[in-house]
Simulated assay, not measured.
Amino acid sequence: MTAGRRPDPPLRPLAAPPAPRRREPVTAVVALGANLGDRAATLAAAVRELDRLPLTDRVVCSSAHESVAVTLDGPDAEAPAYLNAVALVTTRLAPSVLLGFLHAIEERHGRVRRERWGDRTLDLDLVAYGDVVSDDPRLTIPHPRAAERDFVLGPWLEVDPDAELPGAGRVDALLARLRGAAP
């Protein structure tokens, strides 16, 4: 430092950094299914685990509905029947984070991802996340086959009579079409 020159002032930010943005709660639709083991106990345990997720305020679940297993080729009456339900999860978790939690819950219940259409101790699908539409290969929402699945639409309609599947329409109309009735 030379004589007569002041030292440089310490560097300070021009403004305070922005506070982290708090995500608004969104209703996510989660389809639950199981066709191995004690299906009812597994679904009940999974719903309890959904209710304990961080940043999750509320979980409302339909009753359980039994359905025939579905494969790539269609219904498979030889496979063990599924027990299905739908949960509405009010959460502030990002969709990808929620999906990670769903996979962790499946794994805790013995789910092994070997074959795409195989029997399962537990299957949790993120069917919809508010009105978000995403075709990301890691997370496609709404679920690409939700509009074709009675075992998703029926339980969903039970817990939300005004439900809409983003990009496809009202759940009651989709279900009526599937069942061959006029919407």
Rank of each mutant, 00 (worst) to 15 (best):
Pro18Phe: 13
Pro20Val: 08
Arg22Asp: 14
Arg23Val: 13
Glu24Lys: 12
Pro25Gln: 05
Val26Lys: 00
Thr27His: 04
Thr27Gly: 00
Thr27Trp: 02
Ala28Leu: 04
Ala28Pro: 01
Val29Ala: 09
Val30Lys: 00
Ala31Tyr: 07
Ala34Met: 09
Leu36Lys: 11
Leu36Asn: 01
Gly37Met: 10
Gly37Trp: 07
Gly37Gln: 06
Gly37Cys: 14
Asp38Gln: 15
Arg39Gly: 02
Ala40Cys: 10
Ala40Lys: 14
Ala41Ile: 06
Thr42Lys: 07
Ala46Glu: 07
Val47Ile: 15
Arg48Gln: 15
Glu49Tyr: 08
Glu49Trp: 12
Leu50Thr: 01
Arg52Pro: 01
Leu53Arg: 04
Leu53Gln: 01
Leu53Thr: 04
Pro54Glu: 03
Pro54Tyr: 06
Thr56Pro: 00
Thr56His: 04
Asp57Cys: 10
Val59Thr: 03
Val60Cys: 03
Val60Gly: 03
Cys61Leu: 03
Cys61Lys: 01
Ser62His: 07
Ser63Leu: 11
Ala64His: 09
Ser67Tyr: 07
Ala69Gly: 05
Ala69Phe: 04
Val70Gln: 13
Val70Met: 13
Val70Ile: 13
Thr71His: 06
Thr71Lys: 14
Thr71Gln: 09
Gly74Ala: 06
Pro75Leu: 05
Ala77Met: 05
Glu78Arg: 15
Ala79Glu: 14
Ala81Asn: 02
Ala81Trp: 06
Leu83Cys: 03
Leu83Ile: 08
Asn84Asp: 05
Asn84Val: 09
Ala87Arg: 00
Leu88Gln: 01
Val89Ser: 00
Val89Ala: 00
Thr90Asp: 05
Thr90Arg: 11
Leu93Pro: 00
Leu98Met: 04
Ala104Met: 14
Ile105Gly: 09
Ile105Arg: 12
Glu106Asn: 12
Glu106Ala: 14
Glu107Tyr: 10
Arg108Thr: 13
Arg108Asp: 10
Gly110Glu: 13
Gly110Lys: 09
Arg111Cys: 15
Val112Glu: 09
Val112Gly: 10
Arg113Thr: 08
Arg114Ala: 10
Arg114Gly: 15
Glu115Arg: 15
Arg116Gln: 14
Arg116Asn: 07
Trp117Arg: 12
Gly118Phe: 07
Asp119Gln: 11
Arg120Thr: 13
Thr121Cys: 11
Asp123Cys: 11
Asp123Tyr: 06
Leu124Tyr: 02
Leu124Arg: 01
Asp125His: 14
Leu126Glu: 04
